[in-house]
Write a protein that binds this DNA or RNA. Structure first.
Length: 857
RNA sequence: GGAUGCUUAGCUCAGCGGGAGAGCAUCGCCCUUACAAGGCGGGGGUCGUAGGUUCGAAACCUACAGCAUCCACCA
């Protein structure tokens, strides 16, 4: 017997371990069709947050649903080494101990990183268990494990040999704190306040003074020219002359190029080819020297003369002061401008000329663009997110993949100690002759291979790869479409000739109750474990997957969690009640439809249509709609109506056994339909049913039975519900107690036989008069209900009938207006017209009855 | 500068071509033997603004406004 209240702590206890131990999460049943989902591997940088819960629970719902539908489901778990992110964390931890990574050296540092990894992997495992995700642990992978490292090497070497990876000197984004290069997507731009310094440049051989503005005076030591627009009349006479750099007194040629915007600043621009991407292009075009004046920590180097050794901002301040003192500062403008910050260290990114490894993106992107036009394209849910992918693919720049870090896949490039010649190879050459490249790969380089590297690739004969690839569905947030989804697609297509997944389900972010992004700086993050302790994991799973629209952000809400928990409590108690009704000696019988009464037919018909609707929404990943259909059925049709009504028929010994069987079927199927969302409580309820397998995980999804569909029974049931509702409303409006006794008159045309019993019980009718056949016809009472009349006074009845008449007339008017519209008749679908006609007829009949009643008063 | 999304009841949000919905809040009545973490019954919305398409628009189109996000540029 279930307890009176649903206690999530008791319910959750031991279930996950049991499922895991029994092997329910393991894939490999060859008698079934395969279905595969890979987890987006969480970073081993910290605890999982609510975003992870939304992500993994969504996958888990799909996995559990598909298992019930008879698929051999492989849900692959794993984690990401998260190169720069993890290294930043480990370094931060070391810094607290007063140690830098350089103090430790590469090897010792990596030991520390692995310790960190283990610590956080344990944490993540605990959280996965708590959340209940049904992953196959026998296939768990880590991006730095051996197999995945093989895949990484294979990809790097192949791309290199195909000319799609090259080493080059370009302007990259440099993180001076972590001292590594970054890719474009790892730079976060924010609008920060800053200064726009207008400096005076003396022009050689002229008495003119040229005013040039810059936001970064410290880079003036790397300047090689001043540019103006060739159409700019103000400066036409100066082109070809030289201006004196007020920072170091060097003469700079004044040149003209279309690139310069006449209206921006003074229209004259300094050119720093080694510290600005646009200036770099100009530098290439005009063959300038590339003068770096900053080192890898963003400190001034020897080019900065007396400022050498200063931090870039320190130098800026000192330099501006010196220029001002020399009388060369025109003015300072305070501006808001976009500044790039490192995603991980938040340091202001320094664009810097640097030799790095790049992936040539054009050919890879073109293949994706082509594939997305074919029938084998990756299908996005919601569809609009495909545009995000296409836009990125259309505008890709080469991908800087080398990182000056230690934690990651070391680049398989080797340099001949004598000649310096590069050798790129999966196998290390004789290390007496060669040294390996010091750098590691961008962490996304390995994540990009995740859907196939986890399944055994590059061994294309690996059983999992053959059976489960391409995977079926990828679930992830819109925030990593560029980082991850796009890269998996191009690598997948390039290396396996197939898109790595058929469908991509994109979800939004979870925000705090005020709608703000959860962030460490705001301190508004919510720990999923706290939520689980308070409301239970099932309530969290239910809330987080059914209160959002695909692709849109959602807000965390304590209220909605409480309401989710209340819903589970409702089902808990409905089950408890049904079980108490079934009793010890309940026998399951096959339902013979012919033997069933109206209300049993009603609830079964509603159940079947619910199954159909829920299933169709599950298939299109519309979990909010699916759960809403189920919710309505559970509350309105089952708990509020049928469960109550069945109390009448259960008293009838002849009917009791059939009713029990119906109750059993309905409650069981409710539990099964809900199970993918809230597996813990559903397992508990399932196991408490009189007949069950070892676990709900052995069950199949409820089967839609078309023959149980009965519009007639549904209509009759709804009429009864409406009669009850109307009389209750009447009582409430008259300030009568709900259980105040009444006398009712029932028409012989009442919806179905035996209806009096229900009216007696639920309306507290002390007497029900049934009019003799052929006399009285159908009756109309107060609301819209036919077939029923209250024993009330004449005046009241008159008022009530008139009110009713008014409402009906409004409806008739509406229908007639529609049906007399030639446009409607000509263009509306014929089913719609038929429905309107039917409504009109019904209402006309009602009106006639009301009038007949009125005439008799 | 380009793109996308949002604007619906007091709050949080569904609905996205055929009579305005849910949860919570609110008001009234009920400890009715599954559930007071409950039940029953109410009140509450010219669906951001203005045009257009359509027989019919909250829904489709266009413009505008506000909010949010992403991309690019910013010497």
């Amino acid at each position: 017997m279930l307890d009176k209240h649903y206690d999530h702590n008791l319910v959750e206890k031991g279930k996950y371990e049991n499922w895991k131990d029994k092997g329910y999460f393991l894939a490999g049943d060859k008698s079934k069709d395969p279905f595969c989902i890979v987890i987006p591997p969480p970073n081993v940088t910290g605890k999982l947050h609510l975003g992870h819960v939304m992500d993994t629970v969504t996958q888990d719902i799909i996995a559990r649903y598909k298992r019930m539908k008879g698929y051999d489901v492989l849900y692959v778990p794993g984690m990401d080494h998260a190169g720069i992110a993890t290294q930043a964390k480990v370094e931060a931890r070391l810094r607290k101990e007063g140690v830098s990574r350089y103090d430790l050296g590469r090897e010792k540092f990596l030991e520390k990183a692995w310790e960190w990894k283990k610590e956080y992997a344990d944490f993540i495992h605990t959280q996965w268990a708590k959340v209940g995700i049904s992953v196959d642990y026998s296939r768990e992978r880590f991006t730095l494990d051996e197999g995945l490292s093989e895949a990484v090497k294979k990809v790097f070497v192949t791309l290199y040999n195909e000319g799609l990876i090259y080493q080059g000197e370009k302007i990259i984004n440099w993180d001076p704190e972590l001292r590594t290069a970054l890719s474009n997507v790892e730079v976060i731009h924010s609008d920060d306040p800053g200064e726009f310094y207008y400096f005076k440049y003396r022009v050689e051989g002229s008495d003119k003074v040229l005013i040039v503005a810059t936001t970064r005076p410290e880079t003036m030591f790397g300047d090689t020219a001043i540019f103006v627009n060739p159409k700019d009349k103000r400066y036409a006479d100066l082109v070809g002359k030289k201006a004196i750099n007020p920072a170091n007194g060097e003469p700079l040629p004044i040149m003209a190029d279309e690139y310069v915007d006449i209206d921006f600043g003074t229209g004259a621009m300094k050119c720093t080819p080694a510290h600005d991407p646009n200036d770099f292009l100009l530098g290439k075009k005009y063959n300038f020297p590339f003068i770096k004046c900053l080192d890898e920590c963003a400190k001034m180097n020897e080019k900065a003369g007396k400022y050498q050794g200063m931090d870039r901002y320190e130098c800026r301040k000192a330099l501006v002061k010196d220029i001002e003192e020399a009388g060369n500062l025109d003015h300072i403008e305070h501006i808001i401008h976009s500044v790039g910050h490192s995603e991980r260290s938040n340091a202001v990114v320094e664009p810097m000329l640097s030799k790095q490894w790049f992936v040539k993106m054009k050919p890879l992107a073109e293949r994706v663009l082509k594939q997305q036009k074919s029938k084998d394209k990756v299908e996005f849910f919601p569809a609009r997110f495909e545009k995000v992918l296409l836009r990125w693919m259309n505008n890709v720049e080469d991908w800087c993949v080398s990182r000056q870090l230690w934690w990651g896949h070391r680049i398989p490039a080797y340099y001949n100690k004598e000649t310096g010649e590069v050798l790129v190879s999966e196998k290390a050459p004789d290390m007496n002759l060669y040294t390996q490249d010091e750098d590691v790969l961008d962490t996304w380089f390995s994540s990009a291979l995740w859907p196939f590297s986890t399944l055994g690739w590059p061994n294309t004969e690996a059983p999992d790869f053959k059976r489960y690839y391409p995977t079926d569905c990828l679930v992830t947030g819109y925030d990593i479409i560029f980082f991850w989804v796009s890269r998996m697609i191009f690598q997948g297509e390039h290396f396996t000739d197939k898109a790595p997944f058929k469908k991509v389900l994109i979800h939004g972010l979870i925000r705090d109750e005020q709608g703000r992004k959860m962030s460490k700086t705001l301190g508004n993050g919510i720990d999923p474990i706290d939520v689980i302790d308070k409301y239970g994991v099932d309530a969290l799973r239910y809330f987080i997957t059914t209160n959002s629209t695909p692709g849109l952000d959602m807000r965390y809400s304590d209220e909605k969690l409480a309401s989710s928990e209340a819903y589970l409590n409702k089902i808990w108690n409905a089950t408890r009640y049904v079980e108490s009704v079934l009793g010890e000696d309940f026998k399951e019988e096959k339902l013979d439809y012919k033997d069933l009464d109206t209300l049993e037919r009603f609830i079964l018909s509603r159940l079947e249509s619910t199954i159909k609707k829920v299933e169709s929404k599950m298939e299109s990943y519309q979990f909010a709609s699916a759960s809403e259909y189920l919710y309505d059925f559970v509350y309105d049709d089952f708990c509020s109506f049928y469960l109550e009504m069945s109390k009448v028929s259960l008293n009838d010994e002849k009917k009791a056994s059939k009713v029990k069987n119906v109750l059993y079927k309905v409650i069981k199927e409710i539990i099964l339909l809900l199970y993918p969302y809230t597996p813990f409580v559903c397992e508990e309820l399932y196991l408490s049913l009189p007949f069950h397998k070892d676990s709900i995980m052995e069950e199949t999804y409820p089967q839609y039975i078309a023959s149980f569909h009965s519009p007639k029974a549904e209509k009759e049931g709804m009429l009864l519900a409406k009669m009850i509702k109307d009389v209750r409303a009447y009582k409430a409006s008259k300030k009568m107690a709900p259980n105040a006794p009444l006398t009712l008159t029932l028409s012989p045309k009442a919806p179905f036989k035996g209806i009096e019993d229900y009216l007696t019980r639920f309306l507290f009718a002390k007497e029900i008069k049934v009019l003799p056949e052929g006399k009285g016809d159908s009756l109309v009472y107060n609301g819209l209900t036919l077939f029923l009349e209250l024993d009330i006074g004449k005046g009241e009845l008159l008022a009530s009938l008139n009110k009713e008449k008014e409402a009906i007339l409004f409806e008739i008017n509406r229908s007639e207006k529609m049906l007399s519209n030639p446009g409607f008749l000509a263009k509306a679908p014929k089913e719609k017209i038929a429905v309107e006609r039917e409504k009109l007829e019904e209402n006309k009949a009602k009106l006639a009855e009301i009038e007949s009643r009125l005439s008799k008063i």
